[in-house]
Design a protein around this nucleic acid. Structure first.
Length: 571
RNA sequence: CGGGGUGUAGCGCAGUGGGUAGCGCGCAUGGUUUGGGACCAUGAGGUCGGAGGUUCAAAUCCUCUCACCCCGACCA
C-alpha cells in the first residue's frame, strides 16, 4: 500500500473528545472515527487490525472444534419474552418496529436465536456436543459508552454457544474454550488473567472473565499472589476475620449524641468498627430492604442483587427510609417488623455489637445475633478489598484494575428449558440441553492491546495484528536514485507478499518517522542517499532503539527472514 | 437518570461595553528544502449545534432544545 493513496490522515493534535490512551491514539492514527456516542467507523488501517484479530480468534476457535455460522441481527421480541431476558436486559435492548408494527430487537447477544435453532436440529444425545459460533455485530444501548472502543453500543463480537448432554460435557466444552481464549491472548501478546466472575444479565451459574491488568480498566479485580486466586470484586470471596468481644453481655441502650456514621459511633464508644453493625437500605424491584453487615465491611451490591434475585437494586431514598419508620444514622435491626432484613454472615463472627436504637441520639450496645434480632436472609454480601485475607490460603489479597477482554459462562439449562430445547438420552428420557456461552469483543480487544502497548510516540502493535508489518520510508524522493530504488524495493517486498506500507509522500524525514511510530508498524525500512552510499537499507524495529544496515541485495528475502524470526523467536 | 463541562473551518483553539468572525495545524498552487513533525508567497474553506425571543443590529443577551465528553448510577 502506498501511503499517498491511503484513506485517512494522521493528526498531530489529539481530538478533544478523547481521554483514554487507546482512544487518543486510534483517533490520531485515523484507525477509527466516531459518528455518535459509542458508535464508530473503522477506517482502512483500523479495519485491517480488526480483521487480523478476527482471523486469529477464528483460527483458535476452529481449532477447538467450533463451527462458524451466521445468525440474524434482527430478532423477534417474542423470543426475548419467552426467555424472560427482556427484563434483565431492560433498556439496554435496542428495539424497533417493522411496518406491521411487529416489535423487533437488535441482537445484543444470541442465546435465544441459537437455542431456537438448535431446538430444530438436535433431537438426541447423538447430535451433541456442539460448539457453534459467529463473529458479528452486537447492539447494546449502554447507559454510558466510554473510552473510545472500550465500551460502545455497536460492536463486533465472537460469540460461541456450547450444547452438551450432561454437566461433564459442559465442563469439557468450558475447558476447551478457556484454552482457546488463552491461545488467542498469547497470539495477541496480551497478558490476560482468568478471574472468577459474576454472570450478570446473561444468567447462569459459573463464569470467568479474562482481564488485561491496566490502571485504565473499569473493572476491579481481587487477587492472591500466594495461591493464584483471582476474581472480579463483584464476585470475590474473602476470609472474614473473627472479632469476638468476649462473652455475651446484656443489651443496653446508650446515649450517642451526634454520632451517626460508623466511624463516629466506634470512636465515641471506643471500640473498633468491627464491633459495630452497619445498616444500609435498598430498594429491590420496589421492595424496601434492610441490610445489616459488620461495621468494618461494605455491601457488595452484585452479591446482594443475586441473593435477592432482583433485577433493579438501588439505595433507598431518604423519604423511603423515613416512611419505613427508620431513623437514618440510628437505624436498628432490633424490633423491625414487616421489613425484609438481609444480613451478611459477618454478623455471626463477633459479639456485643453496637448498632442504632432507631431513635435519634441513641444506640444499643451488646447486640448479639440471634439473641436480639432475627433476619430473613443470611448470606455473604460483603465486598472484598485489598488487604483482606484470601479465603483459600489466608494470604493478603491485593486489587487491580482490568479491562474485560473475554467472558465465558456455564449457562446450564434455564434457557433450553424456557425455549424447549430438549434432547433424548440414551435411556430414552427427554432432558434439556446444557448450555454454555463464550464471548470476546473484538474492538475492545483491539483497544486493550493499545492500552498496554504504546509509548510517547504512538502505538506499538504486535507483529501478529499490525495493520502492516513493514513501513518503507524513503527520504529525499527528489533524488532520482532514491526514488527508483525505493520503488524497486517496494515492488520486491510486495512480490514476496510482505505487508508493506510504502511512504511515498514528499514529506520531510521527521514527518515520516513520526507517522511510522504513531501507526505502530513493527519494522521500519529507511532508504536515503545516505544508505545508498553503501547500497543498503536501514532497518529498525518499533520496539528497539538500535538500527542496522542491510545490503540491498535480496532485500525482500532478508526482510522476510527477519519477520519470520520475530514471529517465531524459537525457530 | 443525577452532577460537571463543551459545541465557532477537517483538527486544536481565540473571539461579551452586542456592530456582520480570527489564529495555528491541515488543505490547494508555485518555489526553495529533506535523517525526527522545514520555509516563503498566494489561495480555498465557516448559515458560529438547532429553534424561538430581545434589539436598528446577536457567535456574544434571554428562553427552549439537541449533540458530545467526564464523574456517578447502571451495565456483557
Amino acid at each position: 500500500m502506498r501511503f499517498s493513496k491511503l484513506f485517512g490522515k494522521t493528526f498531530r493534535q489529539t481530538p478533544a473528545e478523547a481521554e483514554g490512551i487507546s482512544h487518543q491514539l486510534l483517533l490520531r492514527a485515523s484507525m477509527v472515527s466516531q459518528i455518535a456516542a459509542g458508535i464508530y467507523s473503522y477506517l482502512p488501517l483500523g479495519w485491517r487490525v480488526l480483521r487480523k484479530i478476527e482471523q486469529i480468534v477464528r483460527e483458535e476457535i476452529d481449532k477447538a472444534g467450533g463451527q462458524e455460522l451466521m445468525l440474524p441481527v434482527l430478532q423477534p421480541f417474542e423470543l426475548w419474552q419467552q426467555s424472560g431476558r427482556y427484563v434483565s436486559f431492560g433498556e439496554s435492548l435496542f428495539t424497533l418496529k417493522d411496518r406491521r408494527e411487529h416489535e423487533l430487537v437488535l441482537g445484543p447477544t444470541h442465546e435465544e436465536v441459537i437455542t431456537e435453532l438448535v431446538h430444530r436440529y438436535v433431537q438426541s444425545y447423538r447430535d451433541l456436543p456442539l460448539l457453534l459460533y459467529q463473529i458479528q455485530t452486537k447492539f447494546r444501548d449502554e447507559p454510558r459508552p466510554r473510552g473510545g472502543l472500550l465500551r460502545v453500543r455497536e460492536f463486533i463480537m465472537k460469540d460461541l454457544y456450547s450444547f452438551d448432554v450432561d454437566e461433564a460435557g459442559l465442563d469439557r466444552s468450558y475447558k476447551k474454550m478457556a484454552e482457546a481464549y488463552k491461545n488467542i491472548y498469547a497470539r495477541l501478546d496480551l497478558p490476560a488473567l482468568m478471574v472468577e466472575a459474576d454472570s450478570g444479565a446473561i444468567g447462569g451459574k459459573e463464569s470467568h472473565e479474562f482481564m488485561v491488568i491496566t490502571d485504565s480498566g473499569e473493572d476491579e479485580i481481587i487477587c492472591c499472589s500466594n495461591c493464584g486466586y483471582a476474581a472480579n470484586t463483584e464476585k470475590a470471596q474473602f476470609a472474614k476475620a473473627e472479632v469476638s468481644a468476649g462473652a455475651l453481655l446484656p443489651l443496653e441502650e446508650i446515649s450517642t449524641p451526634d454520632a451517626k456514621t460508623i466511624e463516629q459511633v466506634a470512636s465515641f464508644v471506643g471500640v473498633p468498627t468491627s464491633q459495630t453493625l452497619k445498616a444500609v437500605f435498598y430498594s429491590a424491584d420496589g421492595e424496601f430492604i434492610f441490610v445489616v453487615i459488620r461495621g468494618d465491611l461494605e455491601v457488595n451490591e452484585t452479591k446482594l442483587r443475586n441473593a435477592l434475585k432482583c433485577s433493579e437494586l438501588r439505595l433507598a431514598t431518604e423519604s423511603q427510609v423515613t416512611i419505613a419508620g427508620l431513623v437514618a444514622g440510628f437505624a436498628s435491626p432490633i424490633g423491625m417488623k414487616d421489613i425484609k432484613i438481609v444480613a451478611d454472615d459477618s454478623i455471626t463472627l463477633g459479639s456485643n455489637f453496637i448498632a442504632g436504637a432507631n431513635k435519634p441520639g441513641y444506640h444499643f450496645s451488646n447486640i448479639n445475633y440471634p439473641r436480639d434480632f432475627q433476619v430473613d436472609l443470611m448470606v455473604d454480601i460483603a465486598l472484598a478489598r485489598s488487604g483482606h485475607n484470601c479465603s483459600k490460603c489466608g494470604s493478603k489479597l491485593s486489587s487491580a484494575h482490568g479491562i474485560e477482554v473475554g467472558h465465558i459462562f456455564k449457562l446450564g439449562t434455564f434457557l433450553s428449558e424456557k425455549l424447549g430445547a430438549l434432547s433424548l438420552n440414551r435411556d430414552g428420557t427427554s432432558r434439556p440441553i446444557i448450555m454454555g456461552c463464550y464471548g470476546i469483543g473484538l474492538g475492545r480487544l483491539l483497544a486493550a492491546i493499545i492500552e498496554q502497548s504504546y509509548d510517547e510516540k504512538g502505538i506499538i502493535w504486535p507483529l501478529s495484528v499490525a495493520p502492516y508489518q513493514v513501513y518503507l520510508c524513503s527520504l529525499c524522493l527528489d533524488n532520482s536514485e532514491v526514488a527508483s530504488i525505493a520503488e524497486d524495493v517496494y515492488q520486491k517486498l510486495e512480490g514476496e507478499s510482505i505487508e508493506v506500507l510504502y511512504d511515498d509522500r514528499n514529506e520531510s524525514a521527521g514527518v515520516k518517522f513520526n507517522d511510522a511510530d504513531l501507526l505502530g508498524i513493527p519494522l521500519r525500512l529507511t532508504l536515503s542517499p545516505r544508505t545508498l552510499k553503501s547500497q543498503s537499507v536501514e532497518v529498525k524495529w518499533r520496539t528497539q532503539k538500535e538500527i542496522q544496515l542491510l545490503p540491498l541485495d535480496n532485500i525482500a528475502g532478508k526482510v522476510k527472514t527477519l519477520l519470520r524470526k520475530a514471529a517465531n523467536p524459537l525457530k
